[in-house]
Amino acid sequence: MAEADLVLMVTAGRGPAECRVVVARVARRLAEEAAAAGLSVALDLGEADEAAASVLVALGGEGAPAFAAGWTGTVLWVDEALRGGRARRNWYVGVHRLAKPARTAPLSDADVRYEAMRAGGPGGQHQNVTESAVRAVHVPTGLSAIAREGRSQHQNRKQALARLSALLSAVADRAAAGAKRSEWLDRIEVERGNPRRTFRSA
C-alpha cells in the first residue's frame, strides 16, 4: 500500500441482525463520502448486498488518514422501521482502522482486469479530461479497487493493484480470524453511545 492507504472495518460487533443492515448502509455512505472527497476507494460489499456482519473499506490518497479519523469510532443510525416500527430505533455500528496487513495477497495477472476511466474529483483540469484513473478488478472475487491520484495510467495501475492486494489480504485476515471469533469480536466491540456520526433514515 502507499503510505496514505489504509483499511477501515465497519462492523456490527455483537449487535442484533438489524445492525448488519446498518453496516452495509454505513459502508456505502463512507465510500460515497470518500469518493466525493477525491479519495480512491475499494470495499468488499457487492451492490446487491443489503446486510453484512462486517465490511472492509480500503482508502487511498493523501487525505485518507484525516478522512478516516473523522469516521473512526461508533456510528449511530436512527431508523424506526428496521424492527417493524417496534420500540427500538437506535442502531450502533463501529468503524475501526485496521493495522496494515502483515502480508500481501499474491495476485496473478490472469486474475486481474484493468479498466481505464475518467479520474474525476479534485485535482484540476488534467484529472477531469483524461482517462488516467484505473480500476483493478479481481475476477475470481469481483472485488475492485480504483486509483486516480497518479498523473498517468501506469502510476494508477500500480496503485490500484497494490490497493486491491491490500483489500484481499485484509479479507483473508478476517476469514482467518473467524476461527477465533470470540476473541475477534472482543477486539471490535461496538460502543453503545458517544457516536462519532449519526444518520437518520429518510
Rank of each mutant, 00 (worst) to 15 (best):
K158Y: 11
A53Y: 00
P140C: 07
R151A: 15
A51V: 07
G15R: 12
D173R: 09
A110K: 14
N194I: 00
K158H: 14
S201M: 10
N128M: 10
A31S: 14
L59N: 06
G60T: 08
A116P: 05
R181T: 10
A176S: 12
A160C: 04
R97H: 03
R113T: 03
A147G: 08
S169Y: 11
R135Q: 13
A66Y: 01
G120V: 08
P122L: 01
A81N: 12
P195D: 08
T104I: 09
R157E: 10
A37C: 06
A42D: 07
A202H: 14
R89W: 04
Q125T: 14
L185F: 11
G178M: 08
K158P: 00
P122H: 00
E183L: 13
Y114V: 02
G38D: 01
A202G: 15
F199E: 02
D44I: 05
A99M: 07
A27S: 15
V21G: 02
L167S: 06
G63K: 11
T198Y: 02
G121E: 06
L98E: 07
E18A: 15
R163D: 01
R151S: 14
G85N: 00
S108K: 13
E131R: 01
R187G: 02
V10E: 08
R14N: 13
A36I: 05
W91A: 06
S40C: 13
M9H: 00
M1F: 13
S152P: 03
